[in-house]
Design a protein around this nucleic acid. Sequence first.
DNA 1: GTAATTTCTAAACCTAACTTGAGCTCAAGC
DNA 2: GCTTGAGCTCAAGTTAGGTTTAGAAATTAC
Lengths: 151, 151
Amino acid sequence: MAPSHGLSIGYLAERTGLAVSAIRYYEAQGLLEPWRNAGGQRRFHRADIRRLSFVMIAQKFGFTLPEIREQLSSLPGNRTPTKADWARLSEGFRRHLDARIATLEKLRDDLDGCIGCGCLSLPSCALYNAGDRAAKKGQGPRYLMGDSPDT
Amino acid sequence: MAPSHGLSIGYLAERTGLAVSAIRYYEAQGLLEPWRNAGGQRRFHRADIRRLSFVMIAQKFGFTLPEIREQLSSLPGNRTPTKADWARLSEGFRRHLDARIATLEKLRDDLDGCIGCGCLSLPSCALYNAGDRAAKKGQGPRYLMGDSPDT
DNA sequence: GTAATTTCTAAACCTAACTTGAGCTCAAGC
DNA sequence: GCTTGAGCTCAAGTTAGGTTTAGAAATTAC
């Protein structure tokens, strides 16, 4: 049931599909700030449903909880996102996603090149040099798949 | 240096760029099977460099260590992948990657639709229903961003 | 023949995002 | 007034993929 003033954690869980424990965890991470009733139980704003929905969607786009907290706290008065906020924030989502897709597409291209060129005999492998592990220690090209320049 | 018969773990680490601790961890996960010398130290085959390279590349494509172990153990005699094996395995990599890209592109399309249609006032949100969390409990559509059918 | 480096094992620790459990209190129904 | 269910806190467990630490033994370098 929906209490007339202040939502219980169980109701919020039911409405969002999140586990009660997850909501408590999000509070501990600073994503929500419920108040307490006389008995010490958490009471939430109706807008917190929207806030939690935003959290869930942002997670799908690959943001971490600290990043999501940043996004939420960047809103005036730490408010729950409005439609206008959403339009602006979703721009960032778009960029984040585009970057991830681009990374994977580059990996796919490298894979195609690697199949074609017979990577196993190459002294340096595009598959390894491409992507996030690259330029980790500035140690020059890595010799993969058992080959080395002197072999 | 490269010992003339049997590679030390440190040499393997140097050649692959992996940490010594990581190589030991991979052994514990069943990805490698070094033998021991008289003093009890691990000694590796030269082909294990190639084997580790395969592991690193497969990880970039999003496979877990148990999955990679499966792939390696599917090879006749649990051998290190040859060029022919590589051509076959890379097909699986390609499919894996294509699927991941497709998921993200669907998410991007849903996002674009959501910005345009004013998701905040929709009773059900494509952004939430799309993707991996969907169909988790068969509980029907989730009502996101604070809206419900009776509101 | 030392000294320095590497390697060994086992267990503990790490991050992220939660879940689970124990033991207790609060609220609601009859 | 009793029972049941929901909620509370705090600590520990979970998964993945490792890293760190400690103390001892092996190996290499000079």
